[in-house]
């Protein structure tokens, strides 16, 4: 996969896809999308980058170990589920609040953080698999 065009375009494509994945993740509650899809899109983006430029640049780019990201996602999801315990509600009860930013009120909820946790788990785990296999195929 050493074509010049692919190598040139890969970083831009990857950035766009990651941006798009975040968009898909955040709109998921009301439109098609969500953590699973977003995570898969981001993981594909990293896989593309890895195919074009090799594994090491990807690892440098995402800085954390992919499985670390996945672990963080699981912890985030767990905590956002457990938050409801402090409000005398069962595990995983959604809590909603509205944060005023400029003139809009942005809904913020534990459910959103749960979905972000799902996103991180999927991104982390699948990127880890893809990178590991790419690494193998080169040695």
């Amino acid at each position: 996969m050493n074509t010049l065009i692919f190598r040139t375009i890969a970083p831009y494509l990857t950035s766009l896809m990651v941006l798009f994945s975040v968009f898909v993740l955040l709109r998921g509650h009301n439109e098609p999308g969500g953590g699973f899809i977003g995570g898969l899109i981001a993981a594909s983006a990293f896989a593309i980058y890895g195919i074009a430029w090799g594994v090491s640049p990807v690892r440098r780019a995402i800085y954390f170990h992919p499985l670390g990201i996945a672990g963080f996602g699981l912890v985030l999801a767990t905590f956002s589920g457990m938050l409801s315990i402090f409000f005398h509600a069962p595990f995983m009860t959604g809590l909603w609040g509205y944060v005023p930013i400029f003139e809009d009120e942005i809904p913020v909820s534990t459910v959103l953080f749960f979905d972000i946790g799902v996103y991180f788990v999927v991104v982390g785990a699948i990127t880890s698999v893809a990178l590991a296999l790419e690494e193998r195929s080169r040695d």
Partner: peptide, 22 residues
């Protein structure tokens, strides 16, 4: 508070299932 029913089931109604799955 969600219009996408599939996503609401995943992250809210059946959140614990999803939690196990991730």
């Amino acid at each position: 508070h969600g219009a996408n029913i599939v996503n609401v089931i995943l992250v809210d109604f059946r959140g614990t299932d999803t939690w196990g799955e991730i």
